[in-house]
Amino acid sequence: MKTKEAVGIALTGLGLILYLYTIVIGGMRGAIGVRGTNEINAILISLGMYAVLIGPALWLGEIPVAIKKFIEAKTGKKLS
């Protein structure tokens, strides 16, 4: 496994844990964060979003097979 993929998996996992944690806590308290402040749980779900955005891109970041096939069929060229 390449380092990039490992970092991607770690970030994806971290992002999902942050989502799960903040939603469970938010569900118990009736809200994520506190009105009028920038409380830690609201910041954590935001950080979770960034991790979830970047993580899978590093982990599964190659060109998708379905798109590759479409291009090869249209252009007749073999993509690397």
């Binding site: 939603i23 938010g26 569900g27 009736g30 809200a31 994520i32 964060g33 506190v34 009105r35 009028g36 402040t37 920038n38 409380e39 609201a42 910041i43 779900i45 935001s46 979003m49 960034y50 955005l53 970047i54 891109a57 970041g61």
Partner: peptide, 27 residues
């Protein structure tokens, strides 16, 4: 509906700016 997320106006500006920055560089 049941789990609102509270941040200040300024906090949201920064969160959205971070999102815009990250998302714009993804395929």
């Amino acid at each position: 509906f049941y789990i609102p997320v509270y941040l200040t106006y300024e906090g949201w500006v920064l969160v959205l700016a971070g999102y815009s920055f990250v998302a714009a560089a993804l395929p």
